[in-house]
Write a protein that binds this DNA or RNA. Structure first.
Lengths: 244, 244
DNA sequence: CGGCACGTTGATCAATGTCAAGCAGTGTGG
DNA sequence: CCACACTGCTTGACATTGATCAACGTGCCG
């Protein structure tokens, strides 16, 4: 258990001023003095895969700022269906909606790939919101972006088949994590298990397996455990029907 | 063509101060003077079914406030799949996202049931946003609500079958339009065609037909054209697995 | 070694899409 | 007024997709 160590505040963590995500995050509007306020108030800690930042149904305690790692927003319904609605990676803020509406969290925020996350207490954020009006604007822009993405995901879920949805996900990972090898193929390491891939595209793990085999046979994509090689990216985009 | 008449400004329309939706709409925060500014600037007109407020790809000209009628937000993808992402009815604001991000509209706003809609030019809204900071807050709350809804729709689209999605839609209409007849049954008139129902739940019209027949046979719901009778609302909620 | 998590495979079945046809209601032009 | 086209809706037959159930391999860890 690393926990007792890593829970204690800010040891060895960067200050917000140094954070690579400062210009793109929801905090970009803050003044230097406000930023140092966040700096003092934030709690930074490392998380292992499987840990939850908060759970569906919890009251909002504050908001989370992802420094590294990968977060999945999971929703479980009454029938026990568990799906991942969205991913959050480095530089994004998680949990702002429940905080802003003072409602319960509607989803569980679960760590999929281990990383470091800062927590900022709701009291602090509330003060900042009063102080610097630009912050609300940033949350608004963030919310609109999330909305745009979720809306597109929704549209795809209604119109595309499993294979296309899967390939779309692959391309999202490729944009974030992929690179070209010496022979010009796209290569990447998937950050999550088959399990979670299934939960992301609303399928059963078995079906994901079959889609993979299918693609493999078609020569479009190669899989070896979590390693993926894209032989022909154009062809992949083709079969998706390029979207957002 | 009613158009030339109804396009001319504000004839016979209420002022915003009288609008039933004022307390619940995004405009609830405005001062009396700001409200009268909106009042003077707004263009009100009636729309017939099938007309579009704006089209996917258009630049944002301003935002729309629905007084009556039913608006559907439609997205058409490259393959020609046409789906309805969301509905907007009286008292809601449409088109605020593209306005706030200065991007193109991502969806077409299409009139499904005829009604009256106010248009407020982007210049006016921009001025209001500067004047009264509460307005931004209202847009933020609105965006969060839309997000919550779309997220739930997304989750349902990934987990529930056609029948459950259809019944869920029926219950949404029932909440808005339904009433109880003398024998305690829920009754309503569907505001849209089978066509659009299919587009809303991401199905083919034929499949919707079959679901209806299926429910009819099961004795759960009765359909006659657009008239719907719910014999046992509890049972309906049961088969959905109550959600948002 | 034994147990467990992850992933794959096969067989089978249910749900839904696709294609073709038909029917009722409605408006249109002769 | 009728014939006709047209739209919205339904139905049937069939193909396809994806879920479900059961089994098995592999690697890891106690």
């Amino acid at each position: 258990m690393v926990r007792s160590d890593s829970t204690t505040a800010n040891k060895g963590t960067h200050s917000c001023a140094d954070c690579f995500a400062r210009q793109t995050s929801d905090w970009r509007s803050l003044s230097a003095s406000d930023l140092s306020l966040v700096d003092k108030a934030k709690r930074t800690r490392t998380y292992e895969a499987g840990e939850a930042l908060f759970n569906q149904g919890d009251a909002a305690q504050g908001i989370y700022c992802v420094q590294s790692g990968l977060i999945g927003l999971r929703r479980v319904d009454e029938q026990g269906n568990s799906i991942l609605l969205r991913l959050s990676s480095a530089g994004t803020t998680v949990g702002y909606r429940a905080f802003l509406t003072k409602e319960e969290h509607r989803n569980t925020a679960e760590v999929l790939s281990p990383g470091t996350i800062c927590f900022i207490d709701k009291g602090v954020v509330a003060r900042l919101l009063e102080d610097s009006p630009g912050l609300g604007e940033c949350f608004l822009q963030h919310c609109i972006e999330d909305m745009n993405q979720t809306e597109s995901d929704y549209a795809r879920s209604l119109t595309l088949g499993l294979k296309a949805r899967f390939l779309h996900l692959i391309m999202i990972f490729y944009e974030r994590l992929g690179f070209e090898d010496e022979s010009g193929n796209g290569v990447m390491e998937l950050p999550i298990q088959r399990n979670e891939i299934a939960a992301l595209i609303g399928a059963q793990p078995e079906s994901v397996s079959r889609v993979i085999r299918n693609l493999q046979n078609g020569g479009l994509v190669e899989f070896d455990k979590r390693r993926v090689v894209l032989r022909d990216i154009e062809a992949v985009l083709q079969t998706i029907g390029v979207q957002d």
